[in-house]
Design a protein around this nucleic acid. Structure first.
Lengths: 221, 221
DNA sequence: TCCAAAAGTTGAACGTGTTCAAAAATGGTG
DNA sequence: CACCATTTTTGAACACGTTCAACTTTTGGA
């Protein structure tokens, strides 16, 4: 009689496993969260957790999804009152890192699972395409509100996302308190990139940028 | 009565384990090479392999070392008859990827072990400092034989090495036949970087490059 | 030559992620 | 209700990397 589609029993169990795992990941980190631990905490058998999630990594992918959603929300919010490419880029990058911060302790372990090409977590792979496209979408928002030469406009969001991936990699390695160095990097790199974009119309720079775009297209095929 | 310093028995065993492991890594890949397999093939017990190598990763580090040595040799050779920054850079990068090629099949799995910050394989970490410094040395060679503005000269090798790490990351993901796309990237990026270096004296570009250098210094501390 | 300390060797044992055949619960059909 | 196919659940079992206490061999000085 519910208007809402009632979760089937099995969907409830799946959600229970997922939430238990998320909580455990957040409190104990990646390595100390074991499949047996998740099963025990969720009150189901080890086999059942594997019935719903084929691997530990697939559970981490859920965490990844959640974090990207948070990143998007935070970035959209921050973009509302930021104008100019430098500031907008800075806002988006800081928002992204903000959303990631709770996971820094086990981001280290995570990256081992996230980077192998065939991993479902691999940011460049097929399984995470949807998530990746939303992430690129954030940088489309960044670009939309800023002055960007036309010949660069279409490609820029993807390039910025790639740069963001670099920032995330840096962040994972960043052992300074509160990841201060990553913040420094963002604050320094954002205006630099903005300047580069602004200069990209100038006669000396434009051919260079065009070559970069051509190379990007060529390398992708 | 040997003039050569005779290997002690234990050094021989260590070498035996190492060579067995290297062969096994090369033929079966990372994942299918097990510590038990190495021990069996080498004719020693499982415990003994752990007496000489504290972990599987430490054995992979040996492979890493070997490959860097090969890279250096190949690069030095290739640099002998290459002049101009673009060509020299191209030569060094291709030589590096050449040396890496036999490992592409399990480079994928490798990266999972290599990137976590605390891993001995992490290219930015302390355990691999020596190896890293030789690698940066290759790019010092590249720079020495080319015309580079003075204000950039000291920092450039490290920046190029960083770029090379990016190329390696790209190569790991590169699923095209014979990693064609990586070769395309090298051929396209090398002249671009050379141009950028050449232009770095010009009034518009110089402040940008100087800012990049300043940011690099700031971020590293 | 002897013996204690050091170096080297061993295989059982632990905890892990993952697999799987079998058992149990569920849902629809006659 | 009775029957059967499908979905869900279970825990034992596997292979793995790693640890460790016990054992054996080598070393070097008295």
């Amino acid at each position: 009689m519910d208007a809402q589609p009632m979760d089937s029993k099995s969907e409830q169990t799946k959600a229970l496993v997922r939430e238990t795992a998320m909580a455990m990941f957040r409190t104990k980190g990646y390595a100390k969260t074991t499949m047996r631990g998740i099963a025990a905490d969720a009150g189901v058998s080890l086999g059942s957790t594997y019935y719903y999630y084929a691997s530990k990594d697939e559970l981490v992918l859920e965490l990844y999804r959640e974090s990207v959603t948070e990143q998007q929300a935070a970035a959209t919010l921050a973009l509302a009152d930021a104008s100019g490419l430098a500031d907008r880029l800075k806002a988006a990058l800081h928002a992204g890192i903000d959303a990631l911060t709770p996971y820094h302790s086990f981001g280290s372990a995570l990256i081992g699972s996230a980077l192998p090409p065939q991993s479902p977590l691999n940011p460049f792979g097929e399984p995470s395409r949807e998530v990746r496209e939303s992430a690129v979408g954030i940088f489309s928002e960044v670009v939309e509100g800023a002055k960007v030469p036309a010949f660069l406009r279409a490609q820029l969001p993807e390039l910025l996302w790639l740069g963001y991936m670099g920032v995330v990699l840096f962040w994972v390695y960043d052992r300074s308190e509160g990841q201060r160095r990553t913040r420094t990097l963002i604050d320094g790199a954002a205006p630099l990139i903005a300047k580069l974009v602004a200069f990209s119309r100038l006669p000396v720079v434009k051919p260079l940028v065009e070559e970069v775009l051509a190379l990007k297209a060529k390398v992708q095929s």
